[in-house]
Write a protein that binds this DNA or RNA. Structure first.
Lengths: 143, 143
DNA sequence: CTGTATCCATAGAGATACTG
DNA sequence: CAGTATCTCTATGGATACAG
């Protein structure tokens, strides 16, 4: 996790590119890059998308997210909790009951994530068509 | 790339969850899931974010995206091209010149991606604070 | 310049078993 | 139920060399 290259947390500063357009920083040690890498994660994205509105229990999330392993769900939830996006509530009962919910910060992120999901749903057929076209043309070039 | 498990392209259909809330499909073979996995990719996201407005050449992208290898840039661009998000233009000159630009479809995706980047920039300090808090509390529990 | 083609290391992720 | 703790394995991705 620690690269050891830079000591200070490098804040992202927008700079001008060759075209004079205000461009966001893409340096690897840039904090925004690191956060994006975390958010733009297969499982994180699904968890945040699912946690909209209602709280959910561990097993419930596990059931809903087809294909996730117990380990990855635990890891993902811990990261999201650490980033302040998800709140974990342990109820001292037997058997244990743990609830997960979005924090206000997580809720605000949910909006943009949902927009991404919506975009995907809206354009899935276009993408599927593009893929078919591409694969078809690729075959033709071989023959 | 080919899973071989299902033959027909399974379209995502929204279903109702336990709460009666309209929930999007999270099945692993769901097409939306697959597209999201592709888009919510470290490098894809950066490429789309950078290709806003102006076209860019291969080396130019390579320079801007700190840390990307030649192989990953090629792979990422091919996937984006296949998905119809990026247009690749080869100029028949020596030395070769190849331009990359967003398609209209890619342009529409860029908007939501940019929203994600903007969100990250706006809230990076909150996330950083949350991490510090979390790590601090974790240390206390050990002692 | 813009790529392929290989080889190889490693982090991500699955499977399994065990615990409070 | 909601996790840890291991072990293992594979896919991802870096490094390098070569080519049109």
């Amino acid at each position: 996790m620690e690269e050891g290259t830079s000591n200070s947390p490098s804040y992202c500063c927008r700079t001008e590119d060759d075209y004079g357009v205000l461009q966001w920083d893409t340096r690897e040690d840039c904090e925004v890059r690191q956060i994006l890498d975390r958010i733009a994660d297969k499982w994180s994205l699904l968890v945040i998308a699912l946690l909209d509105r209602h709280t959910m229990r561990f097993t419930q999330l596990r059931r809903e997210i087809d294909g996730i392993s117990q380990r990855m769900l635990t890891t993902t939830l811990r990261q999201l909790e650490r980033d302040g996006l998800v709140r974990r509530t342990v109820h001292p009962v037997v058997p244990p009951r743990v609830d997960y919910a979005l924090t206000p910060l997580g809720g605000s992120l949910h909006k943009t994530i949902q927009a991404l999901v919506d975009w995907t749903e809206e354009h899935q057929s276009e993408i599927a068509a593009a893929r078919t076209r591409y694969d078809h043309e690729a075959r033709e070039k071989i023959n």
